[in-house]
């Protein structure tokens, strides 16, 4: 019986075994740490300056209504009857069923950022649960768009964890989520005053 050779040739195996034996570590010709340390210092200074600007950025994120994902909801809301009617219409959704955006394993969002979001969450959930079904649907659709964006960015970050652009985009989705919460919560306050 003739045996048909299958898989790599024996000399290939020997060659690849030699390849596998090559040293994994190669020492650079000079110490690269001083250059890295200098750049980390610059990075830390930049981060500190971004950190000082963070409350302002957050406030801007809460106030500026220029997010396309929120446009639909905004238009629907503007064309509706006065907000009082929305509140009176009641709803059948339990606040706990309205889930916040879940940021994936590759997210660099800090605990303080998520805590800021969670501080608004309960009020947002309660308000959304009481909205008229049509408005509620629109709000939840916008939340789903933000979730989808967060998921896509997280998947991309898994492939390219060091991408500054992707990390910025992720922060952008987080700000959109905060904007949505803020608008919904603020709308309730307006309703109360308008009676």
């Amino acid at each position: 019986m003739t045996t048909i050779p299958f898989g790599p040739r024996r000399d290939d195996d020997a060659l690849m075994a030699k390849v596998a034996e090559l040293p994994k570590d190669v020492a650079p010709s000079r110490d690269l740490w001083p250059g890295i340390a200098a750049r980390l210092g610059e990075e830390r200074r930049a981060t500190a300056s971004r950190g000082m600007g963070w409350p302002a950025a957050l406030a801007a994120g809460l106030l500026v209504a220029s997010v396309s994902a929120l446009l639909t909801w905004g238009l629907v809301r503007e064309s509706r009857t006065p907000p009082d009617a929305e509140v009176l219409a009641g709803g059948t959704v339990a606040p706990a069923d309205i889930r916040p955006v879940s940021y994936g394993a590759n997210s660099a969002l800090g605990a303080d950022q998520l805590a800021a979001r969670d501080a608004l969450l309960a009020e947002f959930q309660a308000r959304v649960a009481r909205l008229a079904p049509e408005t509620r649907e629109s709000v939840l659709a916008n939340l789903a768009i933000i979730q989808k964006a967060a998921d896509e960015i997280d998947a991309a970050l898994a492939r390219d964890p060091a991408s500054g652009l992707l990390n910025e985009l992720l922060v952008g989705t987080y700000q959109q989520e905060l904007q949505l919460y803020s608008k919904v919560v603020t709308a309730r306050d307006g309703t109360t005053r308008r009676t």
């Binding site: 890295i36 750049r39 980390l40 590759n106 997210s107 660099a108 800090g110 970050l157 060091a162 990390n167």
Partner: peptide, 11 residues
């Protein structure tokens, strides 16, 4: 290594 430092919070 600089990129790793920046991305460490996400690791």
């Amino acid at each position: 290594f600089v990129s790793a430092w920046k991305s460490l919070p996400g690791y």
